[in-house]
Design a protein around this nucleic acid. Structure first.
Length: 489
RNA sequence: CGGGGAAUAGUUCAGAUGGCUAGAACGCUGCGUUUGGGACGCAGAGGUCGCAGGUUCAAGUCCUGUUUCCCCGACCA
C-alpha cells in the first residue's frame, strides 16, 4: 500500500491521474493555475457519483434547479461574515466587451464597456439563490423549500492541488428554507447523515462526522457540520459540509413568511455540499501502487474481458470472449471487451489496472481447454479460475464483494488510525509522525488552544465527535466536548 | 505574499567550467513479425533551447531584466 500523497511527483502520480485529468493549457507557456480538464473516463466517474447522489438528494424531498453563474457585488456584500470569508478569493467581472488594439494586430479589453456594478463569479450560491428565495417564500405553505443545484464554482485560492483544491470545481449545493429552528437543525443533520451514508455505500469510505469548531465554520453560518475522511498517508480530508445558517441570510435577503396564525417571521435556512474533491478522496483512499482502484458502483467499466490468442486460435478465442461478454451483460452493465489487435495482453492488463477496473477476465487457449476463465479482482489483485457456466452470478457477487471489501479496509484504517489521547506529548508525537491519523481528545473550545495545537503539530480540529467530561488536551481546563484532530489537506 | 527549485521534442529529462550541425528514453507515424504481465526489428516525423536585451569570433551554456511553472508555508471545500 502506498502512502504517497496524491500530489507527490512519482510514477504513481501519473498512474493515478493521467486517465482522469489533464492540465488546462489556457495560455502560451502557462497553465491557468489550478484549473483542470476532466477527461472522459474521469467524467464518467463523476457522472456515476452524480447519479447516486441525486437519488439520495431526491429522497430528502429536494429538487434540482439552476441559478446564475454571476452574482452582483451588492448581493454578495449583504451578509457581513459571508463576504468577509470569501472576499479574498473571488474572480470579478468588470467589463463586457473586447476591441481590436489600435495597431489592429491584437485584442484588448474595451475600457468603455465597464460594468456599472461588478459581477462576482460564484464561489458558492447562497446570495444569488436567496435573493430569489425571498420572492418564492411568502407563506408557511411555501415551506419547507428544498432546492439543489449542480454547478461549477470558482474560488481563487492561493494554493491549488489537483482535485483537492482547484480554482474551478464542480459540486452540488443543497439549499433549504424552513419554518423553525428545529426543522432546519434536523435538515442539517439529515444532509450530514446522507453524505456519510453515501460515502459508505457508494464510495466505500468510512468517515467521521460532526460539528466544526468556530474557526472552521462556514462564513455566514451559525454552525457547520463536516464529514472527514482519512487518507492513506494519514492526512484528513474534509469530504463534505452541512451548514446551519440560522436566520442570518433570511434577515439580510428578507426571506419572510406568514405563519398559520398570521404572524410574519424570518425563515431558517441550511446549505450543504460536496464536490469533485470526493474523487480525490476516492483516489487517495483506495488506490495502490498499480494505479487507481475504483469502488464498483462508480466504476465506468465494471468488468473488462481480455481475449488472449495466437494467430491459430484467434477466431475461437474471440468467439468465446464475445459470448462471455454477452452473458455477463445480461446481468451486469458496463462490461468491456478489449479486442484491440496487436496490443499485447500484458499491456492491456496494465492499462486496465491503472484505470481501476474492478474485475478483469482473461480468456486464452489454456482456459478454453479447461472450460474456465481467469478472473482477477482489482482490490486484492488476486487471480482465480472460474468455470464459464457459472460466471455471471459469480461476477455480480464478486462486484459487491469488492465494494464491501473496500469499505471494510477503509473502516479498519480509520479505526486503526484514530487514537484516543489525553496526554499532549503523545498527541503531538502521533500527529507529527509519518502515519499521522486522527486523534480524539478533549478541547476546551478556546481559539488560543486551537492555534497553539496548530503551531505545535500542524493539526486542526476536524469535528466534534463526542461529549462527556475531560481536560483540554492543551490547557487542561475542564471540557465537555471530545474533538477529532488531524493534519488536513 | 515569503522561502526554495526549475523552464531544452508530445511527455520525462541529459546537455561540468562557452565550440551544437542540440541528444536520450518513452510516446507518435509507416512496413513486417508478434499477443498468458507494460512486444521486437527496420524506416521516419518531431526543437527559432520561456521571452527581451547584453558580453563574445562563437551562447542551450555567462550577465541583466522579465514571464511562467513546481515544491514548502500563510489562505481555504
Amino acid at each position: 500500500m502506498s502512502n504517497k500523497g496524491i500530489t507527490s511527483r512519482s510514477e504513481n502520480y501519473s498512474a493515478w491521474y493521467l486517465d482522469i485529468i489533464d492540465r488546462a493549457q489556457l495560455a502560451e507557456n502557462s497553465s491557468v493555475k489550478g484549473c483542470m480538464v476532466i477527461k472522459p473516463y474521469g467524467y464518467a466517474i463523476w457522472e456515476n457519483i452524480q447519479r447516486e447522489l441525486n437519488i439520495r438528494i431526491k429522497k430528502m424531498g429536494v429538487e434540482n434547479a439552476y441559478f446564475p453563474l454571476f452574482i452582483p457585488l451588492s448581493f454578495f456584500a449583504k451578509e457581513a461574515s459571508h463576504v468577509k470569508g470569501f472576499a479574498k478569493e473571488c474572480a470579478v467581472v468588470t467589463h463586457y466587451r473586447l476591441k481590436e488594439t489600435d495597431d489592429g494586430k491584437g485584442i484588448e479589453v474595451d475600457q468603455s464597456a465597464k460594468l456599472e456594478e461588478e459581477l462576482i463569479v460564484r464561489p458558492t450560491s447562497e446570495t444569488i439563490m436567496y435573493d430569489t428565495f425571498s420572492r418564492w417564500v411568502t407563506s408557511w405553505r411555501d415551506l419547507p423549500l428544498k432546492i439543489n443545484q449542480w454547478a461549477n464554482i470558482v474560488r481563487w485560492e492561493k494554493r491549488t492541488r489537483p482535485f483537492l483544491r482547484t480554482t474551478e470545481f464542480l459540486w452540488q449545493e443543497g439549499h433549504t428554507v424552513h419554518m423553525s429552528q428545529e426543522e432546519s437543525e434536523k435538515q442539517v443533520k439529515e444532509a450530514l447523515d446522507m453524505y456519510m451514508t453515501f460515502a459508505r455505500e457508494v464510495l466505500a469510505l468510512e468517515t467521521s462526522g460532526g460539528k466544526k469548531s468556530e474557526s472552521e465554520k462556514f462564513a455566514g453560518a451559525v454552525d457547520t457540520y463536516g464529514v472527514e475522511a482519512l487518507m492513506q498517508d494519514g492526512k484528513a480530508l474534509q469530504f463534505g459540509t452541512s451548514h446551519d445558517l440560522g436566520q442570518n441570510f433570511a434577515k439580510v435577503f428578507g426571506i419572510k413568511y406568514t405563519d398559520s396564525q398570521g404572524k410574519v417571521d424570518y425563515a431558517w435556512q441550511t446549505s450543504w455540499g460536496v464536490s469533485t474533491r470526493m474523487m480525490g478522496a476516492v483516489i487517495m483512499s483506495h488506490s495502490d501502487d498499480l494505479g487507481l482502484v475504483l469502488p464498483p458502483i462508480i466504476a465506468p467499466i465494471k468488468v473488462v474481458v481480455i481475449p488472449i490468442y495466437s494467430q491459430e486460435n484467434r477466431d475461437e478465442v474471440m468467439k468465446i470472449a464475445k459470448d462471455i461478454v454477452a452473458q455477463i451483460e445480461a446481468k451486469v452493465s458496463d462490461v468491456k471487451l478489449d479486442d484491440r489487435e496487436y496490443i499485447s495482453a500484458g499491456f492491456k492488463f496494465n492499462e486496465w489496472e491503472k484505470k481501476g477496473v474492478p474485475i478483469r477476465i482473461e480468456i486464452g487457449g489454456r482456459d478454453i481447454q479447461k472450460g474456465t476463465v481467469t478472473v482477477v479482482r482489482r482490490d486484492s489483485n488476486e487471480k482465480s479460475e472460474s468455470s464459464i457456466d457459472s460466471l455471471t452470478t459469480e461476477i455480480s457477487m464478486l462486484l459487491s464483494d469488492i465494494q464491501q471489501n473496500l469499505l471494510k479496509r477503509s473502516k479498519e484504517r480509520l479505526e486503526k488510525n484514530t487514537h484516543t489521547v489525553d496526554n499532549y506529548e503523545e498527541f503531538k508525537n502521533i500527529l507529527k509522525s509519518k502515519d499521522k491519523g486522527f486523534v480524539k481528545s478533549y478541547w476546551c473550545g478556546n481559539k488560543e488552544c486551537e492555534d497553539g495545537i496548530k503551531y505545535d503539530s500542524k493539526a486542526t480540529t476536524r469535528c466534534r465527535v463526542g461529549s462527556g467530561s475531560g481536560k483540554c488536551i492543551y490547557c487542561g481546563k475542564e471540557s465537555d466536548s471530545q474533538w477529532l484532530f488531524g493534519v488536513a489537506y
